[in-house]
Design a protein around this nucleic acid. Structure first.
Ligand code: ZN
Ligand code: ZN
Ligand code: ZN
Ligand code: ZN
Lengths: 150, 150
DNA sequence: AATTGACTGTTATAGCATAACGAACCAAGA
DNA sequence: TCTTGGTTCGTTATGCTATAACAGTCAATT
């Protein structure tokens, strides 16, 4: 992502928060910026290390609270099988999401397929479950690592 | 699960391992027994605590290695969003699986829908990803907790 | 007997996440 | 303006999950 694209994403996030009455504080904005700046999912402690470069000594709760806010406002997603966080590619339209994750290089792609979301929701309904959140992650090899292996 | 059902499951696991040339050692068998005995997913450290009651002081690697074996032989599944392990309900037919997990009481149900598996695999193929493993977990409220809430 | 490989025990450490408390900040009403 | 109450953030401590590294054990093979 270019610097300009990051700025644009931050502005849009700021606007969305304003509309919702949520406060994208400097800290939260900075964490979002760090996540946007990485094309790979980023771990909480990696973010913490970056934060410390600018703000001195901070503890884990500081970054976890910021992450909690960003997740609640659907500005980022958590990749469960990597314990890492990635910027959402379409914050204007809150959604369930799926991920393709490469076991070799860690490349992670956010995809969005509504059919799979509906099927899983229906599977829940059929059993009386009220599905609130879906975790759908496919692990394997990305195109680049596939061809490198052969 | 009744004691008889557990014995039956253990015997079947033993047989499957024998056919495969895999060794279901006393330790591994014991860990599987503990997992079978619980109707909820069990954490590694909880298993470790149980093991220690019979075998004295043991370290985490002991139980994690047993879990690794059981996972590799598809006798158990890992519930990623709970960091816990659950016995597979159909070890004779290795499969991808999905889980419904109650955020309130932790009840976890293994379900199996081939359509959703195929769709996710195709989503990967369409992007050049070779999907090796699928993590599909729906979190929400089970029927019991739903009615208790109202 | 010596060798090999698989399994297990043991200690230490790494990585991920939250509890609890207090200070600082901010918005809104008296 | 001053108070008040809620939100955010800093700080320390702790808990939970997982693995690295190395040593001992055992059985099968040579
Ligand atoms: Zn998204
Ligand atoms: Zn890759
Ligand atoms: Zn199963
Ligand atoms: Zn429940």
């Amino acid at each position: 992502m270019t610097s300009r694209q990051i700025e644009s994403a931050l502005s849009r996030a700021q606007l969305i928060c304003k509309i919702r009455g949520a406060r994208l504080t400097p800290l939260r904005r900075r964490v979002l910026e760090l996540i946007l700046s990485s094309d790979q999912p980023t771990g909480a402690y990696s973010l913490l290390a970056e934060l410390r470069r600018g703000r001195g000594k901070l503890g884990p709760p500081t970054v976890y609270r910021a992450l909690e806010f960003l997740l609640a406002n659907k500005l980022i997603h958590k990749v469960e099988t990597s314990s890492a966080f990635i910027a959402c590619g379409d914050i204007e339209h809150p959604h369930e999401t799926q991920f393709m994750i490469c076991d070799d290089c860690g490349a992670t792609e956010e995809i969005r397929d509504d059919e799979i979301v509906q099927i899983l929701r229906r599977l829940g309904e059929g059993r009386g479950f009220a599905v609130e959140r879906q975790v759908i992650e496919a692990r394997g090899l990305c195109p680049a690592c596939r061809s490198a292996q052969r």
